[in-house]
Design a binder for these strands. Structure first.
Length: 274
DNA sequence: GTCCATGTTCTTTA
DNA sequence: CTAAAGAACATGGA
């Protein structure tokens, strides 16, 4: 469920509820969602006040009044939801943060997500690419020049650029008319500039719609997003391109399903397409 | 039963 | 060293 727009929406809806609030208690139902696995998370948080809540890539970063931090990653099916203390505890609820009058619950059936303790380390950890919303035009071109991988695969690499996932890479490539199989280092400076703009536009629109709810994504208030209705290619295999009516194609790249319009999206290096 | 899923990481192979 | 391909993680829905 979680790419940059979804994670941003969770942060924006959660932030006003937890900033300046003290954690009264913590209940850990599954210790193995926490890294390091032997951390006494309850002891670390109990009585501490949340002084900041931020997003870095797809990470939701909590800062405590001790200046220590931890982050939640939602993985594929994770949710971070505000609920009343008397609300039924649903299956796959692994963690509860109890505040005065409400709880923040982490639920994640597939458990690809979890909690990572940072201490005073940087949330980017030196292994995360730049934030796409503040990307400068020449910056992307420079990053893409470092790899021959298909542009689709390169943009999914969080080390190269942070926050993009399967939906928004497909949408941004379509918006900029770039074929997903184009080698990253063959993307011209001009096209990289267009792509930079497309990435920002797509992400901003998605944030404005509260993200994409395809399966079970909801924000911290349990409200779904609406951007899935505005997708041009993602999850639209066989349906007409909104620009030219050509049926949207689906291929597999880097093990991920990839959607594009074979008419609107071209490869920079001439020749036929796959 | 089969295939697929908004993510990440590791292993194998070239 | 780069990188492609595949598998792995775990669960649920169509």
């Amino acid at each position: 469920m979680p790419e940059l727009p979804e994670v941003e929406t969770v942060v924006v809806t959660l932030r006003p509820r937890v900033i300046g609030k003290a954690v009264i208690d913590v209940v850990v139902h599954r210790q193995d969602v926490i890294t390091p696995i032997d951390l006494d998370f309850r002891n670390k948080l109990q009585g501490r006040t949340i002084i900041a809540l931020d997003r870095r890539g797809k990470r939701i970063v909590f800062t405590l009044d001790t200046d220590e931090r931890f982050y939640v990653h939602l993985g594929m099916t994770g949710r971070l939801i505000i609920e009343r203390p008397d609300a039924e505890t649903l299956k796959h609820t692994h963690l509860l943060l109890k505040f005065d009058g409400f709880e923040v619950r982490f639920r994640d059936p597939r458990r690809f997500g979890g909690v990572w303790w940072l201490g005073r380390a940087d949330p980017g950890e030196g292994v995360m690419g730049p934030e796409p919303l503040t990307l400068r035009s020449g910056q992307l071109h420079k990053l893409l020049a470092t790899t021959k991988r298909a542009i689709k695969v390169a943009l999914l690499d969080q080390h190269l650029i942070a926050g993009l996932g399967n939906i928004y890479v497909d949408e941004a490539l379509h918006a900029s008319g770039i074929h997903p199989l184009t080698p990253a280092n063959k993307v011209t400076a001009k096209r990289a500039g267009t792509l930079t703009q497309s990435i920002k536009t797509v992400l901003k629109r998605a944030i404005r719609s509260g993200g994409s709810s395809l399966r079970d994504y909801v924000d911290a208030n349990g409200v779904g997003g609406g951007y899935q209705k505005l997708h041009h290619v993602y999850d639209r295999k066989g349906q007409p391109c909104r620009g030219c009516t050509t049926p949207i194609k689906r291929i597999v790249l880097g093990g991920r399903s990839t959607h594009f319009c074979p008419n609107c999206q071209t490869r920079s290096g001439r020749r036929t397409q796959a």
